[in-house]
């Protein structure tokens, strides 16, 4: 099982933080979601390979909101509770594309290296 940005006090690496940001942006791109659903969705899509710690998720959401990549709104959820829903902004969509390209380039590069080593 892969764990992202685990314990509370350990500093997060830029790569992991950037990756989490990418995943969040990707998940939210389809439909506005609240924090809990974002965490669940990432787990589901990755077939439970990735588990997101709340200690990293919420600060990441607020960071993205502050950078203007996400917009937040309080709405009633499907369970009838008040929840904070996050929507992708225009800038967020651009950022998503940029990061997706970056990630693919990086992933391709890494797998090339790993293959050649075999």
């Amino acid at each position: 099982m892969t764990r992202y940005a685990t314990t509370s006090s350990s500093p997060k690496s830029d790569l992991l933080q950037g990756t989490l940001d990418l995943l969040i942006l990707h998940v939210v791109a389809l439909v506005p979601l609240h924090g809990y659903a974002i965490g669940q969705r990432i787990q589901q899509i990755s077939k439970r390979t990735l588990q997101v710690q709340q200690g990293s998720l919420y600060p990441a959401l607020h960071r993205l909101e502050k950078r203007g990549l996400l917009r937040a709104e309080w709405q009633t959820s499907e369970t009838g509770r008040e929840a904070k829903f996050y929507t992708l902004t225009k800038a967020g969509r651009k950022q998503l594309e940029l990061e997706r390209t970056n990630w693919e380039r990086l992933a391709a590069g890494i797998s090339l290296i790993l293959q050649s080593a075999e």
């Binding site: 809990y36 709340q54 919420y58 959820s77 008040e82 929840a83």
Partner: peptide, 16 residues
């Protein structure tokens, strides 16, 4: 209070 509310929501959902 906003952060608390957001996290409370998270706990409630998970508890469900």
């Amino acid at each position: 209070p906003q952060i608390e509310k957001e996290l409370q929501f998270h706990v409630d959902e998970q508890a469900d």
